[in-house]
Design a binder for these strands. Structure first.
Lengths: 319, 319
DNA sequence: ACGTTTATAATCGTTGTGACTATAAGGGGT
DNA sequence: ACCCCTTATAGTCACAACGATTATAAACGT
C-alpha cells in the first residue's frame, strides 16, 4: 500500500499513528409526540461502537452496531461529520468519531432492551417554535447570554458576542432561523450554559442548565443532525423516509413542521407538494382525525431518479 | 474514557480495531487558466498524510501535511467526506480517508519542490461547459455509456442504466446540471470507463479513457470537492476566498464561471451581487483588460456575520 | 339544525430572476 | 480625428415562485 503511495514523505507506518474510530448514529423518526431520536441508556447516549476489521464498510459497521444495541434496522443513511476533538484523547490513542444520520419509521418496536425514543426538544427545548417562541429563550437564555457577552474583557468581544447571540437566537427583532441549531448549541457551549461545557471544570456550582445532556459530545452530534436535516428537507425529498407508505397531506405537513420546529401555511404547502409531483393519490381516504376525510397519498418514487436536485422546498414565513 | 462510555457493549480496546487515518486535501484556486487543484507527483496525487498524535486536530494535521508537501498555507477549510472503502485494506490494518476542501489564492509561489497546480478539467474534461457542451460527451462518453447500459443482463437494468446516464450527462434533451460532478464520475467508474476502475482487473486492454487519473481514490475525492463547491457557491459566499483583496465584478463572475463550468448572464450576475450587498466599491478603478475601466470592489466582511444563510445565488440559465 | 373540524380550491399581490436592450467609457488602429 | 472594438453599467420586461388570504366542500358531534 505504501509503495503505491510514494508521494508521502515522512510517513511512518506503526502503532504510533493508530487511532480508534467510533461510529455514532443519530436515528430519527417522527411520531405524534414530535421528532424523536433513538437512544440508549435511557436517553443518555446515542447508539455507537468502534469501526472494526470485520465491517465491510463504515455504513455496514454502523448498521451492525445500531441493530445490536437497539434492534432497529436502518434504511436511509447519510454521513454527518467526523470529529477528533477535545477531551477524547487517551494515552497514545486517539479517538475519531464518524457520525451518521439515519431516517426511519418508528414501527418495529422489537423489545430490544435498552433502547428508547426521546424527543429532540428534550435536549434542545429552545428549538421548538411551533407554538411561537418558547419562553425559555427570553426568560433564561437571553439574560445568561447577555451576562456572558458583558463578561468579556474588551469592547469588541462584547459587541461580537452580543451580535452572535442575537443572530443565533433571533433577538432584537431578528427572524428565527431554524437551520442554526448547531450554531446555537455551540454558542451555549462557548458561553458555558450547557452541562457538557462544565465537565471537568472547576465550577462545581451547576446552576440549572437548559435541556437534557448526553455523554461525551453526543448532544453536539445530535445538534449537527438536526441542523443538517432541517436544511436538507428544503431541497431534497427526504421527509418521505419518515412517513408511512400511505399518508395524508396534513400528516406530511405535521412531520415537516415537527422537524423544522415551525409552522407552515397549509394551502401553500399543499400547492408546493402537488405541483412538484412528489406524491400521487391512491384514491383511498381516511377519516380518523375528524372533519372531512382526507385523501391518502403515496410517495412518487420515480421522481427521485429523474430529478436529482428537486426537493421539498418549505413554504416558510418570510422575514 | 471507556468507563465514561459504559453503554458500549462488546467493545474491545486493542490493536485489532486500530485503523490508520489519512488526511487528504483538495486545495482549490482559480487563475486565468481556470480552476486549479494543488497536486504533488506532477498532478498524480493530492497532498495527504496520516493523522498523527502530534496533531492538535484533524484540521491542523491537514494544514501541516499540505504545508510540508507543498509549502502552501491554507485559509478556508471545510470537511468533505470520510471514506473507508474498497481496495484500501491492508493486512490487519484499515485506512480511513478523511478528505477536506480548502480554498486559497494562488499567490505565494514558494519554490516548494514537488507541488504543481493542475486544472480541474484535465481530470474531468466533460465538466467544462463554458463553451457549450464539450465534444467528448457526445463523441466518446455517450456511445460507451450506451454500450455499457445495453450490456446489462435484464431489461430493467438496461433501462435504469440508460436513464441514469441520461440524467447525469444531459442526454436526450435534458438540461446539464453542474452539481452532478460526483455522480458522473461514479457512473463512469461503474461503467469501467475510467482508469481507476480497471486497476487490478483482468482487462489489460486499456482502451483510451477520458481524463487524467490519480492514485488511489484521489480523483474521486476531487470530484467530491468539485460537486460540493459548485453547490456551495450558490448559497454561501465562499467564492471570495478565491479572490484577491480587490477585484472587478467581471473577475468575480469569471471565477464563478470557472468553478461552475458554465456561463452566467452578466447583468443578472451584477444585480445579484450588488443587491445582496456582498461587496463594496473601493472607488479605485482598473483598466488592464481593455475597454472601459472597471470599478474595483472589496468583499463586505461584516455581511458574513449578520446573515449566516445568505449567499451568492448564481443566476444560471433556466432549463 | 347548527357548529366544528378538516380538506380542497381559487385569488391577489409581491418578489425574484432570466433574457434582453441601451448607454457610457476607455484603448487601438487607420 | 475618427471609427471600431471591448468592457462597464443601467434599465426594462415578462414570467414564475411564493406568502397571505378567502371561499367552498365534506365529514362528525351535539
Amino acid at each position: 500500500m505504501d509503495q503505491a503511495k510514494g508521494p508521502r514523505k515522512g510517513r511512518a507506518i506503526g502503532k504510533t499513528n493508530d487511532v480508534n474510530a467510533d461510529l455514532i448514529a443519530v436515528v430519527v423518526a417522527v411520531n405524534d409526540a414530535g421528532p424523536c431520536v433513538l437512544t440508549i441508556e435511557e436517553g443518555g447516549a446515542l447508539p455507537s461502537g468502534p469501526f472494526e476489521l470485520a465491517h465491510r464498510s463504515l455504513q455496514s459497521g454502523l448498521r451492525a452496531w445500531v441493530e445490536l444495541q437497539t434492534g432497529q434496522p436502518l434504511g436511509y443513511i447519510e454521513q454527518l461529520y467526523t470529529f477528533a476533538d477535545r477531551d477524547r484523547v487517551g494515552a497514545n490513542q486517539r479517538v475519531i468519531s464518524i457520525s451518521y444520520l439515519a431516517l426511519t419509521r418508528e414501527e418495529d418496536t422489537g423489545a430490544s432492551g435498552r433502547r428508547s425514543w426521546a424527543s429532540w426538544y428534550d435536549y434542545f427545548p429552545w428549538e421548538d417554535h411551533r407554538s411561537g417562541r418558547p419562553p425559555i429563550v427570553l426568560e433564561e437564555l437571553r439574560p445568561r447570554l447577555i451576562e456572558w457577552a458583558d463578561g468579556a474583557d474588551d469592547g469588541a468581544t462584547r459587541f461580537d458576542r452580543r451580535r452572535r447571540a442575537a443572530v443565533a437566537f433571533a433577538l432584537d427583532g431578528r427572524a428565527w432561523n431554524e437551520e442554526l441549531a448547531l450554531q446555537r448549541y455551540e454558542l451555549l457551549y462557548e458561553a458555558t450554559l450547557v452541562e457538557e461545557a462544565k465537565r471537568g471544570g472547576v465550577s462545581a456550582i451547576l446552576a440549572s442548565v437548559p435541556g437534557r445532556s448526553m455523554i461525551a459530545d453526543h448532544r453536539r452530534i445530535l445538534a449537527t443532525a438536526i441542523a443538517r436535516l432541517r436544511s436538507k428537507i428544503k431541497y431534497r425529498p427526504v421527509v418521505f423516509e419518515l412517513m408511512p407508505p400511505l399518508f395524508t397531506l396534513l400528516q406530511l405537513q405535521r412531520t415537516v413542521e415537527a422537524l423544522s420546529g415551525r409552522l407552515i401555511n397549509k394551502p401553500n404547502f399543499r400547492r408546493l407538494i402537488e405541483q412538484q409531483e412528489l406524491v400521487e393519490k391512491t384514491g383511498a381516504t381516511t377519516a380518523e382525525t375528524g372533519g372531512r376525510p382526507a385523501q391518502l397519498y403515496r410517495f412518487h418514487h420515480t421522481i427521485l431518479d429523474e430529478r436529482p436536485v428537486a426537493g421539498t422546498k418549505l413554504p416558510l414565513a418570510r422575514a
